[in-house]
Nucleic acid binder design. Structure first.
Length: 339
DNA sequence: GATACGTGGTT
DNA sequence: TAACCAAGTAT
């Protein structure tokens, strides 16, 4: 009888699993749910390389969920600065507080799914990896591997239903966490988007996508929309060695993060160019920054003043600006001013 | 289902 | 270099 997909893949994983800071050795259970959850949230739409230093910093500073639950949201947001998708940090604090109030992590997929910031993927991944539950874990790696394995040529996102069903069918009852991580490792290192290393793939013999001769045809993705180009202005207001920082409100772009005051640019519209103070302003230059759905050219203007701007904000010592937790866009603007 | 939401690495 | 892409979620 031929070996199953899961047996073959688990054998491969036992030999080739990546060693990652949040990962126990394959098959060895004592996996701290806090570390699994934290890493999974950080890894949402984010590369392993980008996550590593943040994971190290967070676990050093907040070693368990109780410590994170007790942290001021503002400090967690600042520590997240540079990692992107900042609603993750807001939800991270909320979830930590719910778990702390509960006294422990929910240990079922449904219980985890109810926490803020845990969607279908993350709830399944934590249930499987941290609690050994059988769960169907589907991320972009699994989508790609499964779409190729079964030559699913329905375009995304309509293909998700079939992909999920196929993934369910090959997910084993035991070691579901290792199986999920094996699928993701395979997708990240072998079954890559552009030049898959089919000669090294443990599943190549049964892969229907490979049999077609064009494995990279799967999964079929819709064409992308063009990104609009936006313009805006940020204002560097300096007084006695400090710069005026504001906190961005709401739940939109960079919400909750410290920032330079700006002219109200959004992903949908250019800024008004209106300054928070009377001039004279000095033009410093501009920085370019790409967001998911818009590219921004941000002009930077500077002024030295003795007065405090209207509205909420704080004078932040320039020498310790690194600790302010500015998102990358404003870190670039600050770098330009200080260069 | 479609859209909003960051950033840095890779090709 | 300009796309493309990454361990997605919320609305």
């Amino acid at each position: 009888m031929a070996a199953t997909v899961s047996d073959t893949l688990l054998d491969w994983y036992d030999k080739h699993a990546r060693e990652l800071p949040w990962r126990a050795r394959p098959g060895v259970p004592p996996t701290d749910p806090y570390r699994v959850w934290l890493s999974e949230v950080m890894l949402q739409q984010t590369t392993v390389a980008a996550v590593k230093p943040y994971f190290a910093a967070f676990t050093m500073r907040w070693p368990d969920v109780a410590a994170l639950a007790a942290a001021p949201e503002e400090e967690v947001m600042a520590a997240w600065a540079g990692l992107g998708y900042y609603s993750r940090a807001r939800n991270l604090v909320k979830a930590a507080r719910e778990v702390a109030a509960l006294g422990r992590f929910p240990d079922t997929e449904a219980g985890l799914r109810a926490l803020p910031g845990l969607g279908d993927y993350t709830a399944a991944a934590v249930a499987a990896i941290a609690f050994g539950r059988r769960a169907v874990v589907v991320d972009a790696n699994v989508e790609r591997v499964v779409a190729r394995l079964f030559a699913i040529d329905t375009p995304l996102p309509a293909a998700r239903k079939a992909i999920r069903e196929r993934t369910d069918a090959v997910t084993p009852d035991s070691r579901a966490g290792d199986f999920a991580q094996a699928m993701m490792d395979l997708g990240a290192t072998i079954c890559t988007p552009r030049e898959p290393r089919c000669l090294l793939c443990p599943l190549s013999e049964t892969c229907e996508g490979r049999r077609t001769g064009e494995p990279t045809r799967f999964p079929v993705k819709p064409a992308r929309k063009a990104k609009p180009q936006r313009r805006g202005t940020a204002f560097w207001i300096e007084r006695e060695g400090s710069v005026w920082l504001v906190r961005r409100e709401g739940e939109g772009m960079l919400a909750g993060m410290r920032a330079l005051p700006d002219d109200g640019w959004t992903a949908r519209a250019d800024g008004t160019d209106a300054a928070p103070l009377e001039g004279p302003w000095t033009d410093i230059g501009a920085v370019r920054h790409g967001f998911t759905h818009a590219d921004l050219e941000l002009a930077v203007r500077r002024i030295e003043t003795a007065s405090t701007p209207p509205g909420e904000g704080e004078w932040w010592p320039i020498e310790s600006l690194d600790g302010a937790g500015l998102p990358t866009l404003f870190a670039k603007a600050a770098r330009l001013v200080l260069a």
